[in-house]
Design a protein around this nucleic acid. Sequence first.
DNA 1: ACACCGATTTAGATCCATCTAACCCTAAAC
DNA 2: GTTTAGGGTTAGATGGATCTAAATCGGTGT
Lengths: 225, 225
Amino acid sequence: MLSDVMEDYLKAIYQLQGEHEERIKTSAIADALEVTSPTVTSMLEKLEERGLVDREKYRGVTLTDEGETVALEVVRHHRLLEAYLTEHLDYDWSEVHAEADRLEHHISEDFEARVADALDEPEVDPHGSPIPSADLEPPDRSAGKSVTEFAEGDVVVVEEVADHDPEVLSYLATHGVEPGVELEILEVAPFGMVTARSSETVDDVSLPEGVAHHVRVTPLPQAES
Amino acid sequence: MLSDVMEDYLKAIYQLQGEHEERIKTSAIADALEVTSPTVTSMLEKLEERGLVDREKYRGVTLTDEGETVALEVVRHHRLLEAYLTEHLDYDWSEVHAEADRLEHHISEDFEARVADALDEPEVDPHGSPIPSADLEPPDRSAGKSVTEFAEGDVVVVEEVADHDPEVLSYLATHGVEPGVELEILEVAPFGMVTARSSETVDDVSLPEGVAHHVRVTPLPQAES
DNA sequence: ACACCGATTTAGATCCATCTAACCCTAAAC
DNA sequence: GTTTAGGGTTAGATGGATCTAAATCGGTGT
């Protein structure tokens, strides 16, 4: 059996691998989990012993297939919970992350199955992030690009808002930046700030780079007249 | 902040106080939580330091008001979860206990409130046990008596089935012993076994003392013709 | 090539919850 | 009243997750 903490490390590594590919450094994990690097080093040793990560001293880790499966299970729990909380308990998308983070390690397989059933096997959570399927096959994580990669005049559809800060999410929601909406890019500043107009609201929104980076979009399938 | 484990100790003490009154002995807690007595002793010392229990060395503990409040909060979480799981996620009453035990320490106050709201502030859980109210005032725990205290010919209504074993609960359900049903007492054997006929089923049920003790009932309000 | 800086690992300590073994208290039996 | 059996507590160890301080690695720049 794995501890909650081990699951958190595996989840963190999985998510970092999704962002930057390849080997994940000790310090990146330490930042993500808010612990010190020696703590991470000793945890990585334990995970390595259990065959959940491949480690090269001083050069970072990658998940083994087994480690990835565990991470996917945790992510599935997390995102199913997020979906359930918004659908059935009237949570706002800005609030679900913290609650799901607390519960994800403590639900049974049975609970997972019942929640998935109640939601009719959803494919994405309220932030547009894909929910790993019950068989825990690694999902495609290449859907969408950061909105920062587009240019003035492009029209895009928001696929995913991969931020967890409730304040940021509330802000985005009130300015019409949510999965499914269309965004017309008005400006991409050299320092990464994106200004856009949402199909949902009248006002324009400006997203500082840190935020914009988490807004993943796809080009509008059909050009508009 | 209290650890999950501390909450478990307080809940266990609360429940033991409900059964046998007064001081709770180290060994009773050790049995309930499946740990050794030295472990309990050292935990009780910590709880005493925090003002959650009153301890008299070699003679057991009682909850302080503060400790009782914590216990009631945990019990409220537990029973609300049990009610929610049966009402909204199609769980059977025999299955909810284990799941609620895992989740009870990890839900937020917000989650608790939303669940209570979705259920319209229920007063009892699926086993008929009272759910402490949101203000955490100690509820009356004298409702009902053990079915073992009645005699042949008595007709009673099941108020609560305070057992947690899924096997026992399934057995009871298939034999018509659930909160709300009427039971006609057919025999109370000298060694405590109770035989009764449920208003729900044709067969008679026999309950060995250990089980019967957990079936709490009240005399039928109106005598039948 | 070499030195240096930043990141990583090693070393050693702490706190929590748990255990076993050994000792000791309380209450019941005589 | 003494004795004794059974349960409670003390002592000391373990394993998990964390920390700080100190040593060490590795890539960068000259």
